[in-house]
Amino acid sequence: MTATRLSSYLAGSCVLAFLMLPVLVVIPASFTSSSFVRVPPIAYSTRWYSAFIADPEWIQALFTSISVAVFTTVVATVIGTLAAIGLEQSSPKLRALALGLIISPLVVPVIMISVALYYVMRPFGLHGTQTGLVLAHTLLALPFVVINVGLSLRTVDPNCRRAAAALGADPWYSFRTVTLPLIAPGLAGAAAFAFVTSFDEVVLSIFLSGVQSKTLPVKIWEAMRIEFTPVTAVASALLLVLTFIMFATVEVMRDHANRAGDQ
């Protein structure tokens, strides 16, 4: 049994390293001083970061990405939270039906949704606009928001709401002062997930972005196909670091909430 355990630990550690390490490669690659991407770089410099900042196209793409992600987060969190509360109160039959519909954008291949939206948005002039991107990204972010907020709602003790009602609070007041603070960590996690879903999204964005609304991933995608300069590594590293900040925030916040709950 120990031999089995030892070999599984060895294989498992290799697999985890295989998952984790390659992701980090873009960081050293972005600090190269030469004009081609090489890991590890022969000499380090920040010249490609300066090149990134000096290029208005990259900066424009970064700001487009952030603005699309922020709007997606707001729209998806609001619609998704309302729906999660609605699902909590609805009958099992309606719940199963609604949940099936909410999850279905994850079953349909993204390329297919991209083609369909591209086809529908062109006559409306939504293609190539930030609004179009926000609508498309919201579609992918919604299932995660609904499920995540639904899970938080489930941890709320119904007695808290009953107590609020017994003390004379109307439903809206008890939602604001009892439920909302209790589901806040789940809500924040859902929002962070929506932000990252939009910020990292490639396929929909490739189809739906025009000259005026290129997101950072679209710009990286184009740069990777045309020329392979270290500026692409800088952009990828920025994407990685921003995503890591979101991930770490969610983890730390959840840890904090768990500790507060234990006391």
């Binding site: 619609i79 509360i85 609605g86 309606l94 939206l117 086809y119 529908v120 579609l139 919604l142 609904v146």
Partner: peptide, 28 residues
Amino acid sequence: DRFWGSVLLLLPLAAFLLMVFVVPLAML
């Protein structure tokens, strides 16, 4: 009351999915 309340809460999501998911796929 709760039934209609939950339908009302689910309405924005249903409208969104109809516009951005169901109709585009049907047209495709």
